[in-house]
Design a protein around this nucleic acid. Structure first.
Lengths: 170, 170
DNA sequence: CAAGATACGTCAGTGTTGTTGACATTCCAA
DNA sequence: TTGGAATGTCAACAACACTGACGTATCTTG
């Protein structure tokens, strides 16, 4: 509401769907995502890691004991790519890799204490920015924020997202 | 409003700032950004281009005649990195590079007809997803979406974003 | 048990995108 | 006019993603 695009012939109900509004949304996503990743990136550079390491740490922390295959589905990368990242994390003693109990083909991934420490540091940095943004925008805006993001996901990603939300969020 | 997190001891006013809510926001950004870039990426692969080419095309289309330096500030990469992208786009006849009139050190960048065609195709694909998400979430949600994203940007990025918004959006 | 499917890891090759370093051109100001 | 700053270009290198192929261990099914 209060949408000063100057084009009123469509009626106010659809003004938020003009090309200009959509373009603003696109550019907002671009610039915001840069901020979103900036703080963890700074920490990771010092350690010789990249964004891929952060993602792996995050989702292992989120689902301790998860399998490689599950992580693959969540992250949407190839196993070769993930393997490179996991290998360095295991070598550096941040992630532990144990043979599955039920199915010995599987590997269960967990964070070591050192891994948890780094993950919490990254999470804290990213959350701090998110908290500031949330606080500044207010609860209603946050609700809308998540509504739009959720509607923007591919269906399969949305399933993952909801599954994760339910797990931690009840 | 209507925030069913089940934890009421903090008082409803701050429930949207719990660690769990912040984590959901982080994961929503991650999954949504994948969707956000998925459609253009598919188109670009066929052409032998990447996401960097899309970004360059987008912001040249947005500010025809812009300089390399300006683009550098917007995109936040090194000039060498941008130059490689620009070179291929120029070689392929999608972007035109003319010596600056006032300052001959500068290069003014514009899209050729072919460049405009591709840029519109990419923009259309990305906008289509954004439109669907906007329509599904509704105008109020869209407002909140943009509020939060804007609050998440680094100050300098926010300046760029607002400057661009004003240019196209008046 | 034999055969096929599944889960994971690895090697080789390629492409995009980021980086640093070196350099040419142009502008501006002392 | 000369030196410094700004702008843009070329070259080499590193990080990280992808495809394709293969090997091993394990599970599942006929």
């Amino acid at each position: 509401m209060a949408d000063p695009t100057g084009r009123s012939e469509l009626g106010e109900a659809l003004l938020f769907l003009t090309d200009d509004q959509l373009r603003k949304g696109i550019e907002a996503m671009f610039f915001a995502y840069r901020g979103f990743t900036a703080d963890p990136d700074r920490i990771l550079v010092d350690q010789g890691y990249g964004r891929a390491h952060h993602r792996a740490l995050h989702f292992i922390a989120r689902s301790p004991g998860t399998t490689v295959n599950n992580l693959l589905n969540i992250l949407g990368v190839t196993k070769q790519s993930l393997n490179r990242v996991l290998r360095t994390l295991i070598e550096d003693g941040l992630v532990e890799n144990t043979v599955g109990l039920k199915d010995k083909r599987e590997r269960n991934l967990t964070l070591t204490d050192a891994g948890q420490t780094l993950e919490r540091e990254l999470s804290f940095a990213q959350s701090a920015r998110m908290r500031k943004a949330y606080k500044q925008a207010g609860p209603e805006a946050v609700h809308g924020f998540r509504e739009v993001l959720e509607a923007m996901m591919d269906p399969e990603m949305r399933k993952m997202y909801i599954k994760l939300s339910e797990k931690g969020g009840a």
